[in-house]
Amino acid sequence: MSVLILGATSRIARELANRYAERGQAVFVAARDTDEAERIAADLRVRHGAQAVAGGFDATDFDGHAAFVDDVAAAVGPIDVAVVAFGDMGDGGDDVRRVIEVNFTGAASICEALAAHMAPRGTGCIIGISSVAGDRGRQSNYLYGSAKGGFTLYLQGLRNRLFKQGVHVMTVKLGFVDTRMTFGMETGIPIASPAQVSRAVVAAAERKVDAFYYPHFWRGIMTVIRAVPEKVFKRLSL
């Protein structure tokens, strides 16, 4: 059994890697920053005695994604679980293209490669880390939100397609988690720890949950936010 963590340098991804490694699974940690990925793999080896391999991964190197999946399988064996945990919030400038390419195009592209790897074996699980930001466009983060919203929709379709082939696709919509993204933010709403997220995600994947919010109360919040009529919503400062 082997697990691929994409975007492994995020805290949530690293905690997920911990959860799988502590269960004795071989983990491939991939990130753009290969030095950091190597440090995380070293940690998994020391901490859990797990087999852990690090490698470089560039979400926007679309043409290289199929070969990347082959490399991972060669290193740690056929991939049973793949977590798409990378993301890019952008820094507010003219990075429209980068935000869309990383969060949507890159995510969809690697998922296609993973689907091609898993479907013939008739088994596997793809976990897509999406966001509540994708549920409704808001002025504060609609670029990131639209890419994540697109990714959510993509995962829905992929789940539908792969179901008959024995591959499970799970969508995780995260609210506020204590990460680099939210550091210093005044949320006014309880914030989940990356370790809590990782436990919830692993447990849900085991039960083959299709899609869920975490923390769970975000489901209620987003139901309300989605229900606000556009005539009203467009006047709000969210």
Partner: peptide, 16 residues
């Protein structure tokens, strides 16, 4: 607190 990786351990000598 988040610079918290265990990088190497030698079970023969105990060096971490």
């Amino acid at each position: 607190r988040r610079l918290d990786r265990l990088l190497e351990f030698d079970p023969e000598t105990g060096w971490l």
